[in-house]
């Protein structure tokens, strides 16, 4: 057993449930299974390198590895957005199915090879909420001119529907929403949204998380650093990350019910977008995804693979499970 000590910058604070505390868990487990010799020491966002610079730092070898949502590097590697979250895409179990058994992992490694990055699937969480709105949203008309904060592909889709999209930094969101600088914002899971306090100032909480049916995190490892590891250590890291995926799915799923109940007590109306809205979002999503696929061949390749897998599994997905609203 070799001795390894890496500093692992994260893009989420470890206080954010499921999103940020998976890697610290993985790191603890690694220490245990290796008898204390493999130490991937996690660092809170910004402490080592900035939260959004993890891809860059791993790619250039400034750190051996880092833990991040895949998609922050959309400006450099457009396909990253697909691995992080796809509007109307796959839910966590299905995404894991595609990654491990549908060719996803191989595509991922191929896409990141030119950048000297070896990404390991290491966490996936339940759908995000669609967002907090100051008023009810019933028709696509309600989106027109809406001042909304959204990131990534979701932002482009809202723009298509006529919203005026901004990218206000996390720290300014609460006040902007309170004062009406914004009419709405999406952020993350209900448990994470709770920590930011949005329920105090916006009372319409919309679901489902059509823009992010699953949100996936990866351990980015520098290719050279990875190659230097013994096979035993490599296996230990990959296995604990696979376990991390399970833990993240379980934890994210476990905690949301209680939070929604708390929101209700605070006077928040938890709702679901109606069919008209979802159709409008879906149509705009298809357009945005097609545009992106037209710009980047790798994006198209991965999108086709995902769509193919989803299509092939569609009948099973629709028939195999109890309908979501079937009484328990």
């Amino acid at each position: 057993q070799e001795t390894v000590r890496w500093g692992i910058p994260m893009s989420f604070g470890s206080n954010l449930t499921a999103l940020g505390d998976t890697m610290p868990w993985v790191s603890e487990q690694l220490k245990k299974v290796s008898g204390g010799t493999v130490n991937l020491q996690v660092f809170e966002p910004g402490k080592l390198v900035p939260a959004l610079a993890i891809f860059d730092s791993v790619s250039t070898g400034k750190v051996e590895a880092g833990y991040s949502w895949m998609g922050y590097e959309i400006g450099k590697v457009p396909v990253s957005a697909l691995f992080g979250a796809v509007p109307f895409g796959m839910e966590s179990p299905q995404f894991a199915a595609w990654m491990y058994f549908g060719g996803g992992d191989a595509l991922l490694k191929e896409a990141y090879k030119p950048y000297n990055v070896y990404p390991i699937f290491c966490g996936s969480i339940s759908p995000e909420a669609a967002g907090w709105f100051r008023k009810e949203i019933n028709t696509p008309e309600d989106i027109k001119g809406l001042k909304f904060r959204a990131a990534g592909l979701g932002g482009k889709i809202y723009q298509k529907l006529g919203a005026s999209v901004t990218m206000l930094p996390g720290g300014e969101l609460f006040q902007a929403l309170e004062k009406g600088v914004l009419d709405g914002t999406e952020f993350s899971l209900p448990t994470v949204d709770e920590q930011l306090g949005f329920f105090k100032v916006a009372k319409n909480y919309y679901m489902p998380g059509w823009h992010q049916p699953s949100t996936n995190q990866f351990l980015y490892v520098n290719t050279a650093a990875w190659a230097k590891l013994k096979p035993q250590t490599q296996a230990q890291i990959e296995t604990t990350c696979t376990a991390g995926v399970t833990m993240a799915i379980a934890k994210a799923e476990a905690l949301q019910g209680a939070v929604l109940a708390k929101f209700e007590k605070e006077g928040v109306k938890a709702r679901q977008f109606n069919k008209t809205m979802l159709d409008a979002f879906s149509k705009a999503s298809k357009e945005v995804l097609a545009e992106e696929a037209g710009k980047d061949p790798m994006f198209k390749k991965v999108l086709d693979s995902m769509n193919g897998f989803q299509k092939q599994n569609a009948q099973w997905h629709n028939l195999g499970y109890l309908p979501r609203d079937y009484p328990h």
Partner: peptide
């Protein structure tokens, strides 16, 4: 210098929808 060069080689643009090009 390499930091800027990498950004140039990758054709880095803003990660935000409708953001600025030529990072």
């Amino acid at each position: 210098v390499p930091f800027v060069a990498t950004s140039w080689e990758m054709g880095e643009v803003s990660a935000a929808p409708g953001g600025l090009p030529w990072r």
